[in-house]
């Protein structure tokens, strides 16, 4: 609570992955070892994976925030560094995004005409597209957006 550190986000990610793995161990793995293929998740697995998602997300955004915004703010304005290397990264990510999006549209059209496409493939493809978009935004914010920290009066007129 003192500063925007990465200690708690680190444990958030660790805890998130551990909860997901607990859910995996709890159900699928043990069931497969016993020669049984469960079709659905138990309520316990749902709960563990849910908290795993939240802890993982919180940890990941905590790390991103520490990288993009720093541990402690200081009032002022700092111009973006820019540079050729980040530009190349943005270009590669944009190409990857176009490629993955094309594949996604093809998969949807295939599903409409030829029959169902596996949900896991569709979900993971959508996740990959969204992850590339996330990375694009992170790189853009880091290298092409000026940093600015404000000091505001506590009794501002916003919203009234």
């Amino acid at each position: 609570m003192y500063r925007n550190d990465t200690v708690l986000p680190f444990f958030g990610i660790l805890f998130g992955v551990a909860l997901w793995y607990m859910a995996y161990l709890d159900g699928l793995h043990i069931a497969r070892l016993a020669g049984h293929q469960p079709e659905e998740l138990s309520v316990g697995q749902l709960g563990l994976i849910t908290f795993g998602i939240v802890f993982f997300l919180w940890g990941a955004i905590g790390y991103i925030s520490a990288w993009l915004e720093g541990g402690e703010l200081r009032p002022g304005r700092e111009e973006a560094e820019g540079g050729a290397a980040p530009m190349v990264v943005v270009f590669v990510l944009a190409l990857l995004l176009v490629g993955l999006s094309g594949l996604f549209v093809n998969a949807v059209l295939y599903g409409l005409t030829e029959g169902p496409v596996k949900s896991s493939f569709m979900g993971q493809l959508a996740a990959a597209i969204l992850l590339v978009m996330t990375l694009l935004l992170v790189v853009y914010k880091k290298f092409f957006v000026d940093d600015e920290v404000l000091v505001e009066d506590e009794h501002s007129e916003v919203p009234w």
Binding site: L41, I49, I53, F56, L57, A60, I61, I64, S119, S120, F121, M122, G123, Q124, A126, A127, A128, L130, L131, M133, T134, L137
Partner: peptide
Amino acid sequence: LLYLAVVFFIGGSY
């Protein structure tokens, strides 16, 4: 975007 990436991954896989 990160939220959507994670829930689409989990939602598709499980």
